[in-house]
Amino acid sequence: MMKQDKENSWSFDRLTNKIANPTWFLKWTGRILPIFIIITVVLFVAGLYLGFTAPQDYQQGNTVRIMFIHVPSVMITMMAYMVMVSSALGTLIWRHPLADISAKSAAPIGAVLALIGLITGSIWGKPMWGAWWVWDARLTSFLILFLIFIGLIVLRFALDDLTFAPQLIAVLILVGALILPIVHYSVEWWNTLHQPNGTTMRTGGVFRLPLFVMIFAFSFLFLSLHLANMRNAIFEKRINRMQRKLAQSI
């Protein structure tokens, strides 16, 4: 049993070491990325077709179709932040070379998805609630999450030259993670105008399929953009290293 454990840990170490190698990462993402992009496009086409051929909701009318982009964008925003949290743990605990690159690359994607969540929610709110914006617990906590993404991006630009920047930003990501349960449970902890979690799922079977397909489409979109942005960050590191090397040789 002990021997088997040792063998397993050895293979796990070997795998993480291999993944930690940026050259190997660039090689396998170069192969896998076109497949992910094709899957994303297919899922978006299917999701949009299903979303626009679904019947109207008896209360919301056609605005129910906004839910097919609002719900997935909000869900994947939360997932993007969780990816940043696991990357921050990777930076602080395992000092994985790609962990900081992963956190850095996920932030702009998370910010754009959060912005889409805010915009689509606001556009849905006007015909349904009669207001573009209310200072409701869910809306306000999600706005704070968006501002945390922006803050982390700005901080990255300001501190990127410092050697301890990855560790500092990782700590801030972990502190910011406190907003995730607040966003999720805000509709249960406070009386909110926003509907409870999973309302669209419960509304009727006819809306479930387009919603699921769009959730998968947004997941693959995030995965594709994240890997592509990580490749860019690795190139950027190499460019900086090479520029330093050239400056020293002159």
Partner: peptide, 29 residues
Amino acid sequence: TRHFFFVASAYGLSFLLLAGLALWIYFAY
């Protein structure tokens, strides 16, 4: 429907932002 404007602007703005992000990553690459 009178909701056409809302649905069209929600989808239009979302895909504009997503396309912008994808193009930014592509041109940076």
